[in-house]
Amino acid sequence: MGTAQEITASISQQLPWQEELYKHFHRHPELGLAEHETSARICEELEDLGYETCLIGGTGIVGILRNGEGPVVLARADMDALPVAEDTGLEYSSTVPGAMHACGHDMHMATLLGAAKFLAGNRERWSGTYLALFQPAEETAAGAKAMVADGLVERIPKPDVALAQHVMPVEAGRIGTTAGPILSAGDSLRITVYGRGAHGSMPHNSVDPVVLASSIVLKLQTIVSRETRPGQFAVLTVGALNAGSAANIIPDRAQLLLNIRTYDLQLRQRVIDSIQRIVRGECAAAGSPKEPDFEFYDQFPLTSNDAAAN
């Protein structure tokens, strides 16, 4: 690839182009599976660099650069923004109300396009095939599934190694990686518990799902603090509790939204089992007239780096 000085000089020359791309993506965030303008801009940039491009999974993109015999390397970035209103005061702040690149995906796209540009401009220094994959809807796990369902595996050269990235709050210029588990498995869970509605003046006629859900939230905290062995990693977050619509009416149900993060699949299952045990137990103790409902969604598998690739 040349000397370190040559590589640094080549990268430095393209940094203004990358910075403008980053600011463009930050100004124009798009939510998962709606990254149409983002996708079009990425395709335009890749084609200008000499890449074959194909849309896969709606707004997903793979740019292919064939450069003779050699390994096939896939590098991946995500594209979607979050439903968050920006209030940073930056001169390149989001222009889309209620949407923002708050998780670094704007940086990921600019970085991957930067790698694509560097490799396209230095073909004499390497050989093989480079795949630049831009994944939509990472935040909901729907984008990767959509690309696979749309024939990703059959439509691109089989990679010998796949590389991903994520910005982290560490010192600039440093790269962190390790063999084995590095990014946790994630599970989101929607739980509906049932009560018996009544007027607020007659609580004795009710089974109050607000009190029930509140009790469940407190009891769930013991899964990590009292059921998980010290040194093991688990995070259980109750991100939302919704019930009722009036101050003087006891509703007939409540809904909780949970998020679980684990590195160990056996521990993950124990946490899930404990959640279901606690919820069912609290419902029984409250006299709930109906069994609770459990709905899993936005599930992400554990990211475990291959030791040889690392």
Rank of each mutant, 00 (worst) to 15 (best):
P159A: 03
S201K: 08
Q13T: 11
E47N: 09
A137W: 06
D252F: 06
A146W: 02
M168E: 15
S93A: 14
A198N: 07
V224D: 01
A240V: 10
L163V: 15
T38H: 02
G231Q: 03
G151H: 01
H108I: 04
A142V: 14
A85W: 14
A77G: 02
Q255K: 10
D78P: 06
G287D: 02
A40P: 13
M168C: 14
P169I: 08
A308L: 10
D80L: 13
E37Q: 13
D252C: 10
S215N: 12
Y22C: 10
V207Y: 01
T95I: 11
V279N: 05
G176L: 13
G176P: 04
L15H: 06
L302I: 09
I182V: 15
A144L: 02
R268C: 05
R155V: 05
L220I: 12
S206G: 11
M1F: 10
E291K: 13
S94N: 00
F300V: 13
G2K: 09
G98V: 07
P169F: 05
F294M: 01
C54N: 10
I216H: 00
V224Y: 00
G89P: 03
T178I: 11
G281P: 06
T192E: 06
L21R: 09
T177N: 10
Q135F: 00
T178C: 13
A308G: 11
I275T: 02
I61V: 12
R196K: 08
L258K: 10
I7G: 09
P29Q: 01
E45T: 15
R196A: 08
G89C: 04
T8W: 06
T38G: 03
D306W: 09
G114R: 08
Y22P: 05
H199D: 01
P16G: 01
I61G: 01
S206F: 03
A9Q: 14
I64Q: 04
A132P: 05
A149Y: 12
S94I: 01
D187W: 04
P169M: 09
L258V: 13
H105I: 02
T88M: 14
A85S: 15
F134N: 00
L256K: 09
V148G: 06
I182A: 05
E227S: 11
K145T: 14
R190C: 11
A116V: 10
T237F: 01
I223H: 00
G70Q: 03
Q5V: 11
W17A: 04
V217T: 09
L258D: 08
P289N: 03
A77I: 03
T178D: 05
V271D: 02
T129G: 10
G50K: 12
S93L: 11
Q221D: 09
G98K: 15
H24L: 10
T222M: 08
T88D: 04
G180V: 08
L256A: 11
V73M: 04
G63H: 03
T237L: 08
A4K: 13
L82P: 07
V279C: 07
L74R: 12
Y130P: 06
A132W: 00
A116K: 08
L163G: 04
E35L: 03
L119C: 00
Q14I: 14
H105V: 02
Q13H: 07
T8P: 05
V224G: 02
L152Q: 07
H199L: 07
P289W: 01
A99K: 08
G287R: 04
C43D: 13
S214H: 08
